[in-house]
């Protein structure tokens, strides 16, 4: 265990990177998810189809492939390297954020969509009979109730994203998993490192879990179900 204590400064930096990757991806992802979930409700088949295929592709392929296409794949194209996009795509950190956010966005969109579908028909009928416009029904009834219904499932997605950030270590970033792997491959002590870094991840899982519980409690007063 002495070795792990010696490595704490390195692990601290790595932990900060893991937190940054998780938070950035989740924040961008939640907006993407909301955007695509609303698109999905659109009557226009092209618009809702676009949203459907976005989710289909990003949920149907491994995150690692998505990350490699963005990091190694796009860098191969000369017109990308010569465009303004390159200032962003040049940096491994932003490649990781883009891949993670697109991925979690696809899952989040599905979570929100099924949240919207779970809203009681009676509630919507009631809104109609009160003469609420479609627009108002959506933004005042379906959206808030649907989002609230999505909270537990979204909590799971947050944990999946936290775990997903470990893939950043495959594109030169030294996140918690990257640091762990480096220590293992230089000191050959897999079990020790696994227990130490694994506990850090579990601690964050625990935090997310309780955060979601807290949010659920906070939002419960709106619509008791």
């Amino acid at each position: 265990m002495n070795l792990m204590i010696e490595k704490i400064p390195e692990l601290l930096n790595a932990t900060i990177l893991t937190i940054q990757l998780t938070l950035f991806s989740l924040i961008v992802g939640i907006f993407l998810g909301l955007f695509f979930a609303i698109l999905r409700l659109n009557k226009n088949k092209v618009v809702s189809g676009f949203s459907y295929y976005y989710s289909f592709i990003f949920r149907g392929t491994p995150l690692l492939v998505q990350l490699f296409i963005i990091y190694f794949g796009l860098a191969q194209l000369e017109f990308i390297r010569e465009s303004f996009l390159w200032t962003v795509l040049k940096k491994p950190f932003w490649c990781a954020i883009i891949a993670f956010a697109l991925n979690t966005g696809a899952y989040t969109a599905e979570i929100f969509r099924s949240g919207f579908e779970k809203v009681d028909k009676q509630l919507i009928d009631a809104a109609k009979s009160l003469g609420m416009s479609k627009y108002n029904t959506f933004y005042k009834i379906i959206l808030p109730v649907g989002l609230k219904r999505s909270i537990p499932a979204y909590g799971n997605e947050m944990i999946l994203m936290l775990k997903g950030t470990s893939l950043a270590s495959t594109v030169t970033l030294i996140d918690l998993t990257g640091a762990a792997k480096y220590i293992i491959s230089t000191h050959f002590n897999p079990v020790e490192v696994f227990i130490f870094t694994g506990s850090i991840y579990l601690f964050f899982t625990f935090l997310i879990h309780n955060f979601i519980k807290f949010i659920e409690k906070k939002t419960n007063y709106i619509y008791k179900t």
Binding site: F72, A75, Q76, R81, W86, K90, P92, T170, T172, Y182
Partner: peptide, 16 residues
């Protein structure tokens, strides 16, 4: 640091 020399070469050629 990279996992393989192939990856180093790719990123060097890409200008990263």
């Amino acid at each position: 640091t990279y996992k393989t020399q192939d990856e180093v070469n790719l990123d060097l050629a890409a200008g990263r």
